[in-house]
Computed example of a mutant assay.
Amino acid sequence: MRDDLTAIGITLTYRSGKEDITQGWRAKLCWADGAFLEDHTIEGEIINRYFVQEIGKAIDYVLEVATQFNLPIWKEFALWYSEDGADNDYPPPDGWTELLAAEAHKRGWRSYLSDPEVTL
Rank of each mutant, 00 (worst) to 15 (best):
A66T: 08
T67Y: 12
T67R: 15
G56D: 14
D84V: 06
F51K: 04
A58R: 01
K57S: 06
K57H: 07
G56W: 02
F69P: 00
D84K: 08
G56N: 14
Y50A: 07
F77P: 01
E64L: 06
Y50M: 03
K57M: 03
F77N: 02
W74K: 15
W74A: 15
F69I: 07
S82K: 11
Y61H: 12
Y81L: 06
I73N: 01
A58M: 03
A58P: 04
F77R: 04
S82D: 11
L79Y: 01
V52C: 07
Y61I: 14
D84H: 12
W80S: 12
E54F: 15
E64V: 00
K57D: 10
F77D: 01
E76D: 15
F51R: 06
F51C: 06
K57V: 10
Y81N: 04
Q53K: 15
Y81M: 14
I59G: 03
V65H: 09
P72F: 09
K75W: 07
I59K: 03
E54H: 15
Q53D: 09
F69L: 15
V65M: 09
L63T: 03
W80A: 14
F77H: 04
V62C: 06
R49V: 04
E83V: 09
L71N: 02
K75S: 12
N70V: 06
A66H: 05
A78H: 10
D60G: 07
E83P: 00
F77E: 01
W74L: 12
A78P: 00
L71E: 02
V62M: 05
A66I: 09
A66E: 05
L79K: 02
R49I: 03
V52P: 08
V65D: 11
Q68S: 11
F69A: 12
T67C: 08
F69H: 11
L79I: 08
E64N: 11
R49K: 13
D84S: 11
I55T: 02
Y50K: 11
T67W: 11
D84N: 13
V62H: 03
K57C: 00
F69N: 08
P72G: 05
W74G: 08
S82L: 07
R49M: 03
D60I: 06
N70K: 14
A66M: 07
R49P: 00
I59A: 03
L79R: 01
F77V: 02
V52A: 02
Q53P: 15
E64D: 14
Q68V: 09
L63C: 13
D60W: 08
D60Q: 14
G56I: 07
Q68G: 08
I59D: 01
Y50W: 07
L71D: 02
E64P: 00
Q53V: 00
Y61N: 13
N70Y: 09
W80P: 00
E54N: 12
E76W: 13
Q68E: 13
W80E: 12
Q68A: 11
K75N: 10
L71G: 01
A58V: 05
S82V: 01
G56T: 07
F77L: 02
S82F: 06
F69S: 05
A58S: 11
Y50Q: 12
L79T: 03
A78Y: 00
F51D: 01
E54W: 10
I59P: 04
V62P: 05
Q53F: 13
V62A: 04
S82T: 08
